[in-house]
């Protein structure tokens, strides 16, 4: 009996652990979402919540139905496979109802540099420039037509094109 008496303080310490563990279970009961672990190591209810998010991107086919003139310019240039919304941002709202929201003009200093800033990590063949040196501060669209950025492709609008078009 006296063993228990002299080890009493150990039981107190153990009791502290048990108490902490119970506290842990109680907190856990309240903070862990009910659907956690139903399918895997995540909250099952999040699937529904994510599915309920509104679609933000319309996709380029949708844009092309109304903006055929842009599509015609774009399809011949190197940006043919760059999605409209890669530059213009998510525009599902606009595509649903053009009157509801007029897209703002993209800032070329930001969007062009995002893809074309020179980096050792990009494949050698990808066209890349050091924007500050290359454009000397001018907006990219002064010289490049965003929808068809190649120098000779932009020329149709320029009077000198006739000569260039020969090749």
């Amino acid at each position: 009996m006296s063993v228990f008496k002299d080890a009493g303080h150990l039981f107190r310490f153990a009791g502290l652990f048990v108490l902490a563990f119970i506290l842990f279970l109680v907190i856990r009961h309240f903070v862990v979402p009910k659907s956690f672990g139903q399918y895997g190591h995540y909250r099952a209810a999040s699937i529904g919540e994510i599915a309920a998010h509104q679609v933000k991107y319309a996709g380029h086919e949708t844009c092309e139905t109304c903006h055929a003139e842009v599509f015609d310019v774009k399809k011949d240039g190197k940006h043919a496979h760059v999605n409209c919304e890669a530059c213009h941002g998510a525009l599902a709202k606009h595509a649903d109802d053009p009157g509801a929201m007029t897209p703002t003009k993209p800032d070329t200093a930001v969007i062009c540099a995002r893809c074309h800033t020179a980096s050792a990590a990009k494949p050698k063949g990808f066209p890349q420039v050091v924007p500050a040196d290359h454009s000397t501060g001018l907006p990219c669209e002064t010289c490049h037509q965003p929808h068809n950025p190649g120098m000779d492709a932009a020329a149709p609008k320029a009077p000198v094109k006739a000569a260039g078009g020969a090749k």
Binding site: D6, A7, H9, L10, R12, L16
Partner: peptide, 16 residues
């Protein structure tokens, strides 16, 4: 920090 136990008899310390 004593957890309310002041038992520091020789046996208790031996157990410790």
């Amino acid at each position: 920090m004593t957890l309310g136990s002041t038992n520091i008899s020789e046996r208790a310390l031996h157990i410790d």
